[in-house]
Design a protein around this nucleic acid. Sequence first.
DNA 1: CATTAAAAACTAATAGCGTTAGTTTTAACC
DNA 2: GGTTAAAACTAACGCTATTAGTTTTTAATG
Lengths: 182, 182
Amino acid sequence: MARAGLTPDRVRDAAIELVRAEGFEELSLGALARELGVRVPSLYNHVTGLDALRATVAAAAVLALDEALSEANTLETIAHAYLAFARTEPGLYRASLRAPDPENTHHEAAALRVLERIEEALSEFPLGPDERIDAIRGLRALLHGFVELTLAGAFEMPRPIEVSLDAVLAVFRRGLETFPAT
Amino acid sequence: MARAGLTPDRVRDAAIELVRAEGFEELSLGALARELGVRVPSLYNHVTGLDALRATVAAAAVLALDEALSEANTLETIAHAYLAFARTEPGLYRASLRAPDPENTHHEAAALRVLERIEEALSEFPLGPDERIDAIRGLRALLHGFVELTLAGAFEMPRPIEVSLDAVLAVFRRGLETFPAT
DNA sequence: CATTAAAAACTAATAGCGTTAGTTTTAACC
DNA sequence: GGTTAAAACTAACGCTATTAGTTTTTAATG
């Protein structure tokens, strides 16, 4: 019937657009099929199933996040880039949180790259190995928590989020700078 | 048929137990009805629907979190109590994240109380009004982010989570102590 | 004690989801 | 032009939540 001309790539791209527009939770085979002008079972010619589709989108999302962080190399710049990505692409950010399938090398590599960028943002501080682990965990928690609360609308507005982020980063920086001198 | 003798309270309690045992995402009317030895539609005699049931569990979860934090009044003790609650009751913790319905006064009050406890943990620091807002946001982000990454298993094990939390709190504390002196 | 009435449980049905099996149709290639 | 493989389809199943309508049980009331 007039064949829609789908391919795995086209399906994936449409899924990504759907996630960008509606959010990761809104990704369903029904919505995707509607978007592509096709019946739901037809998607199975191009995708293993919903779970695999989610995994594919997640991989692309991590790649996008990695890209968004590529210009940043200091504590402050990476934090702002991270928050900015989450705010402009909340759907992709949520998707990026999905743990990569161990078999998906590209996905895992990209996730590792993001982690390394965060690690790199702490390289200016002279930290011992254990301290470094703690600092990375702390920074990740800070970034993720800040984003999560921001997206959830948990921060009532009056004071701009970015200003608070800067202040918190200043606290974190100060703590790190005086930390080795315990 | 032999009437199971359900009440809204018993249904709510069973839902809470189910969430504690299986997680908030696993809460479904099917699972709950099975647990109570009743058919699914029978639940509607005691609950408006799944969404209301989730809201009820969420309210109870926030109450439990508030209770778990009740003994803590310093930065360090509240952080550890927070993490401990999330680790021992991951289902309830996840449930507690659901935004309260504005009409549910008890729920909103409990959520506010949790917030006040976090705020109280910062009272020892001499901060200006704006700085205080930033510090609260930062601490909330830190706690929530830490918990989230811990539950997600994002922190590979070798180094104990609590040790890292202590280190991060020390950094945060140090930063706060030297902050006003900018 | 019998009757009435409310509430609790039921069955049946609908609409949505993802998934599988089996069938038709389209397009490409020899 | 006929063969073949892939793409799309319909039909069906099992799972969700939900609503409507029915039976049954309990409790209260005359």
